[in-house]
């Protein structure tokens, strides 16, 4: 007995349900503010429909005005706004909507993309195994894998830009993962950026 699709409209209820579930020990503070920071487990194996993958509104992939001193081809991530920009010539950028994991909030800086992978494998993080001991320690890449269609590995860190099988998490801070895009977007980005691409991650100032 399980809901396998969680639409944005029912996230609050779903988050509460997951929080209650003994399998997912959610932080109550997160569940109470589901719009901002929702606790939602990865749904390994879940395959989103084409409609779900089509983002509308601000998180839809689009070309925007963007001034920067970074060279065209650079990836700039604004975690607070949940956008990833691929810098283009003439004061513009391709903007992608992203979901940011807790991990993604732990660092800012300048790195390089060191590896690219199609249909990456997934290894659930240790705290997830602890919570759900029956989980496979390794899940082969493919449709339904929480890592999605593509991954770009960020050098010198354990972080990566990857796809997702949960399009509804775009625009939110989610419980795990780094920077996640819908599969169509991460595939678009993957095809545009070579290994060696510079990535600049900016956090909002904190008090």
């Amino acid at each position: 007995m399980k809901i396998i699709k969680l639409q944005t409209l029912c996230l609050a209820a779903a988050a509460a349900w997951l929080a209650w579930s003994p399998a997912a020990k959610a932080d109550p503070a997160d569940a109470s503010d589901a719009q901002v920071d929702m606790q939602i487990d990865d749904q390994p194996g879940y395959q989103p429909s084409a409609e779900e993958e089509q983002l509308a509104g601000p998180f839809e992939r689009q070309i925007v005005f963007f001034r920067t001193t970074e060279a065209p081809g650079t990836i700039v991530v604004h975690t607070a706004d949940r956008y990833l920009y691929l810098v283009q010539p003439n004061n513009r950028a391709i903007r992608y909507g992203i979901g940011v994991g807790r991990d993604g909030f732990q660092w800012a800086g300048i790195r390089k993309i060191i590896q690219k992978q199609e249909w990456p494998d997934w290894r659930p993080p240790p705290e997830m195994i602890q919570r759900q001991p029956y989980l496979p320690r390794f899940m082969a890449g493919g449709p339904g894998n929480p890592m999605g269609a593509r991954a770009l590995y960020i050098g010198g860190t354990v972080y990566r830009i990857h796809g997702t099988n949960q399009p509804q998490t775009i625009g939110h801070a989610v419980s795990s993962g780094c920077f996640r895009l819908v599969n169509a977007d991460v595939t678009d980005l993957y095809d545009r950026v070579p290994v060696g691409t510079k990535i600049v991650v900016k956090q909002a100032a904190d008090l």
Binding site: K2, I3, I4, Q7, L9, W17
Partner: peptide
């Protein structure tokens, strides 16, 4: 579960 279902009146499958 019923509560969750009521909240999501579309797109759920069980």
């Amino acid at each position: 579960f019923t509560v969750a279902l009521a909240a999501c009146n579309s797109n759920q499958s069980i």
